[in-house]
């Protein structure tokens, strides 16, 4: 009988813990870079992500080949010459909302958050920090932030011929709608 009670208590805690998680498989990450020839932009709308509201843990994973560019040639160059998607097919982020205690997940509202963690692109892991907003609306969350990275930090080499026209800094926009995990 004791075992049954213990199991029931454990199941209750396990379900409460899972209720603290928010997930999506359709997160949006885009990037933009202004160049002298033509602006470079791309969007990936198939980002998987999870936020644990109790700890502030935040994770993202997406495929490099799912970034869509306006021009097919840009997409080809991005995958083959810059990020080498065949060798490094994924980008990941694992970090934390450092001020998660400031967010009331049971009260609708817009909460400024700070996120810090490790971003992996092109097989290189780097610490990144960013300020963003977490919008709580019922059982959903909207996370958005903008930050810049340097391509050289991730060993992404710009060919000499276009070095003067392509910016080493790119702006990344994160815009992710989460639903509470069932």
């Amino acid at each position: 009988m004791n075992k049954i009670i213990l199991l029931a208590v454990f199941a209750l805690f396990a379900s409460a813990a899972s209720a603290q998680k928010y997930m999506t498989k359709t997160g949006k990450i885009s990037f933009f870079s202004k160049t002298k020839i033509e602006d470079i932009s791309a969007i990936n709308t198939s980002i998987s992500s999870i936020i644990d509201a109790s700890t502030g843990d935040m994770k993202f994973v997406g495929l490099m080949k799912s970034f869509k560019f306006p021009k097919p040639l840009m997409e080809e160059h991005f995958n083959e010459n810059y990020v080498e998607s065949d060798k490094f097919p994924k980008t990941t982020f694992a970090g934390k909302i450092t001020n998660v205690s400031d967010v009331n997940f049971s009260k609708d509202g817009k909460y400024p958050v700070q996120v810090a963690g490790i971003l992996e692109i092109h097989g290189v892991k780097k610490n990144v920090e960013s300020k963003g907003t977490l919008t709580v609306k019922g059982n959903t969350l909207l996370a958005d932030t903008k930050f810049s990275i340097l391509l050289s930090d991730y060993n992404i080499i710009i060919p000499t011929a276009v070095k003067k026209t392509i910016n080493n800094s790119i702006e990344i926009t994160v815009d992710v709608d989460y639903s509470k995990a069932p």
Binding site: S18, K21, M23, K25, S48, I50, K59, K65, S85, P89
Partner: peptide, 20 residues
Amino acid sequence: FAGFNYDAMMPEMGGTFEFN
């Protein structure tokens, strides 16, 4: 075939094979 969108750090998300 673009790849398998899966991360062992978040097994509860499952995984998605993506095709373009």
